[in-house]
Structures are given as C-alpha cells and as structure tokens.
Design a protein around this nucleic acid. Structure first.
Lengths: 169, 169
DNA sequence: ATAAAACTTTACAATAAAGTATTGTTTTCC
DNA sequence: GGAAAACAATACTTTATTGTAAAGTTTTAT
C-alpha cells in the first residue's frame, strides 16, 4: 500500500488555495513558488483537481484557481479520489490475474473480501475530514510526528517494529 | 493511494500456505500452479515473506515453505508491512521535497498530520484481522462485492460517484 | 493591436515498480 | 556419486508512474 506523489503534492496545492481564504484565487506560478514545485507539475496537478470539480479556473492574464465549494464541503475522500483514483479499483480482480485470463479466485476470494473492507474503512476515515477541519485544527501535533511511530508501531510484534523513525503500515 | 501488486499476490501466496493447514508445507511450483503465477515471481514473493519472518523455508528436494507461526498469530498488518513496506514511510517528508532540498512544510505540515492519522487508522484496521480470521470466515460476502461500491461510494457527493462498478477510495 | 501573463493540452524523458530469467546452492533419492 | 527437485540471490527486461518541456489558447493592460 502506498501513498502516491499525486496524493501528497495534489493535497498540498489544494490546501494552498483553501488556506488563502474564501473565494481567494491563486495562480500556478504563485502555488509553485509557495510549494517549491515546478510550474509544469503544479499545472498538471491543478488540471486533475479541476477535472474533479474541486476547483475552478480563470484563464487569461488575471487568471488563477479558486475552490469550487467552501472548505467545509470538500472532503479528503474527494480530494484523494480525484488525485490518485480509487484505492481498490473496479477492475481490481481483472488486473491481478497472474498468468491466466481470469484470477483463480474470481468466484470466491478472501483477499478481495479483506481489501474491500479496508477500502471502506479508509473511505470512512477520509470522508470524515474536510479541508475546513484541517485548516482549523489548532494543534497539528507536529512536534511529535516522528514519535507517531510508536502508536502505529505498537500494533506490530516487537521484533518486527521499525526502530528508526516514521509511521509504518 | 494504491494497493500494490506485492500486497495482492503476496497475500495470496501467504494464504495459500495458511489454508493448507497447521504445519503444512508448499513448494514454489505448487503455489505457482495454485495461484496462476510464474514460479520466478512466487519465489520472489516468498523470499520477502521469509525475510519478514512470516514463513520458514526448507531447502532441497523435499523442500517448501510453511508458516512461521500459527494463523492466529499473523496479522494482516504484518503481512502487508512485510510485503509492501510502510504506507507512510519514515522518510516521507524527505522524499517529497519538490524542487527544494527540504519540504517547505517541514516544520508544520497539515498534510503530514492527516496522513499520519490515516496510516494509524489503516494499521488499526489491519492489525485486527489475522490469517485465522480470514480462513474461518464463514461467509466471505463475495456475492455482492461488485455492489460493495454502494457502501463506499455513498460517502462521496452524488455527482462524483462511480457509476459502473467497484470500490472507490 | 500587441505583448505579457496565465491556463490547457499533449508529447516526451526520467525514474520506479513489476515481473522474468539466469545462475548457484542445498537436499534427497537412486 | 550423480541427477533431480527445490530454495536463494541477483541481474535484467518490461511496464507504469513521475515529472518536464513545448506549443497553443485565452484574457488583460497598454
């Protein structure tokens, strides 16, 4: 399981616009400067977000991007879905068929069952947070994010835990 | 966010051994045949699982792989972690720095905060299911997995929902 | 009008992931 | 002892993802 670049950078661009305030507009060069990304890449990311109807674009010299809806009407689930596509795709089972035409577990599949549940769980989590929630969070708990490992890590058996740093899933 | 091939195929190989019963042994050619995968690929997947101490290997003519522990002692979190690595890596923030040496949000980052929470949530979910749980599940609910979309999909605003099929996150 | 500034689209290059092939080592059976 | 069968390690090919570049369109200021 992986978080993709599109998720990471796309969320950052979306939040950059959201943080600016209601109705605010930001241009590609501005966002690229703020986020330390190339203008080409920001343009690509924003075109995805636009296609997903999360932002509106104004062309021309005074152009830029603004949120299509207020921050409390945009959930992380929409953002992540728009950017990286589905976690578990509709054609998941026809993608992972191995050497055969059809997956050997097509009729009854415990992996599919589990991954389906996981996808729902993740969707549930992401749908409960809006851009507004993120922006308004008083304490982003960034001091101990490196220690966040401990919380997640404790779920693993001792010898499998990551010693150095970071979250592990 | 994506589920990787390693997750999908690796879990299938692990379950193939687990399903066989306590102490049972399976060879690479056997698993490859059962799962419809190449022997090379199965070998690679099993070597990962072995490195993660989830299975034991016996070399030689009567060789094969067996579970390192009983099915109720192996969680999905361990399996997925072993196979695909961490969802949110320790060096996440140093990987996504854009054009700069250091991410502009390094000091205080709302995306990191949210993704950290998501990683914990996923870890929580995966750690609660063992191989035993999967094997023993009476009804794997496979009849309506295509309809599973509805449950997840309902969390998205109407116009953004996937019409065709599948889970969407 | 014309140039500048900004979005749009698509093609391309670089990188990473996925999967295969090869070669080698260990064990068993004859 | 030698062949067969299996695991082990690694290099290699293919494919997908990332990120960049370039050419085009729209709007505004002068």
């Amino acid at each position: 399981m992986r978080i993709t670049s599109l998720d990471e950078y796309g969320l950052r661009c979306l939040l950059a616009i959201a943080v600016k305030g209601p109705g605010a507009q930001l241009s590609i060069p501005e966002i690229a400067e703020m986020e330390g990304l190339s203008e080409s890449y920001v343009g690509k990311l924003l075109s995805l977000l636009k296609k997903g109807k999360l932002i509106n674009a104004v062309r021309g010299r005074a152009g830029g991007f603004s949120l299509a809806r207020s921050t409390d009407k945009i959930t992380l689930l929409e953002a992540v879905t728009t950017l990286g596509g589905p976690l578990l795709d509709a054609d998941h089972c026809s993608r992972y068929t191995g050497l055969l035409e059809k997956c050997v577990h097509f009729e009854c599949c415990s992996v599919r069952y589990i991954l389906g549940g996981l996808a729902e769980s993740v969707a549930e989590f992401l749908s409960q947070t809006t851009l507004k929630d993120i922006i308004e969070a008083d304490d982003l708990n960034n001091e101990d994010w490196q220690e966040g490992i401990s919380r997640t890590n404790k779920l693993l058996p001792e010898k499998n835990r990551v010693k150095q740093t970071g979250f592990r899933v």
